[in-house]
Design a protein around this nucleic acid. Structure first.
Lengths: 205, 205
DNA sequence: AGCATAATGGCATCGAGTGCCAAAATGGAA
DNA sequence: TTCCATTTTGGCACTCGATGCCATTATGCT
């Protein structure tokens, strides 16, 4: 279970000290297994650490909290979304751009879908995670707000881009909940439809 | 600091056992004082209990968690919102109704405003409370979704009313954050403007 | 005075999270 | 090979939120 020494980065000076005995991804897999069998709340950090063959203290060097385990490498994914926004044609209407990017950001390979569903079931249904996730959503909103602000010639902190980002997040969450409740449907279709409703002001007249 | 015996409900059979030694409201006031001086995180439940002259164990009979203290009597307020929705003229366009009710729901007497601001500063700025508040927001959304569903001839769980509720919540939160950052402005004006943006699809064309 | 009722608060326990630090592992240099 | 610098590990102690258990206290009724 030790990392392969040949994994070293080519450019980097060869590493010095002791090698990490596991990885975030590996811990995530172990943890998800336990969550699936015992449930999230009933799984203690000790359980995860023991199952992964590390000390409890070490677990907290890989993840800030037990909650964070379920979020995987979300921060890196956000970079992708930011990049997708940057690539939007300047003449594309704001809400069209938001819709297409959000839909795109939530596209997954068919073989990743079951895993993603399990992740989202935890995030959206376990109260402790529902709560904690709010903090992650802030980063997501910021990416949307940055883009909206740029397009509207405002600053990120301004009311309109912030409200837009908040509303877009809400729409996406509603779409996700629907997706969890209706396994037959396509996530991207649901998000697309919901973002259209949002852009249409939910039929306001 | 003992409740007045003459506080008894007229219709109720006279109470039997020992009288409560404090009240949620009183605890809330004590707690807010401590939060203001030491900060939320640095204030322990022991601090609050001691300051209120009760045992730590008793505190948890008045509030499920330390987080819950800041929410006061939110559940009862929600009943008011539900009622306001029920009173909306049937011919009033959906998003107009949502806007006016949400604006109305967030109107406060001028003398309540400073207290409300302190409450919302905690809720929106302390990470632990930001996270925990998500759970409270669910109840708020449900009220909006119920109304939207009724108006749209759908069920509460359906995608559109849920998305609408989520988006309305988002808009309201953005408005609140703006209000906290701009003490000079009127909360109801900010919310009204933000809800109009939402109903207008943020200028989608 | 005695009884039923209701709130209190101490005690023990669990689990998340953190600071501290000695021990283990590893590559490079003498 | 030996020693050193570096990095990770994991045990220990501690804080704090939260919960179950239960004897104690206060209160009104009979």
């Amino acid at each position: 279970m030790t990392a392969n020494p040949s994994d070293r980065q080519p450019g980097a000076t060869t590493r010095r000290g002791r090698r990490p005995s596991t990885s975030p991804l590996q811990l995530e897999e172990v943890a998800f297994g336990l969550f699936a069998s015992k449930g999230f709340e009933a799984t203690t950090v000790d359980d995860i650490a023991t199952a992964a063959g590390i000390g409890r203290r070490t677990f907290f060097r890989y993840f800030e909290s037990k909650n964070d385990v379920v979020w995987g490498s979300f921060a890196e994914h956000l970079d992708y979304m930011r990049q997708r926004f940057a690539e939007c044609p300047p003449d594309q209407p704001l809400m069209d751009a938001v819709r297409t990017v959000v839909v795109d950001f939530n596209r997954f390979d068919p073989d990743e879908v079951p895993w993603h569903r399990r992740r989202m079931e935890l995030i959206l249904r376990v109260p402790a995670l529902q709560a904690h996730s709010t903090l992650r959503y802030a980063a997501w909103r910021e990416v949307v707000a940055e883009f909206a602000a740029r397009r509207l010639g405002m600053s990120v902190g301004d009311l309109v881009p912030q409200a837009l980002a908040y509303a877009a997040l809400g729409a996406a969450l509603a779409a996700y909940e629907h997706w969890l409740a209706h396994p037959g449907e396509q996530l991207s279709d649901i998000i697309d439809s919901t973002m259209r409703d949002l852009a249409g002001g939910f039929g306001a007249r």
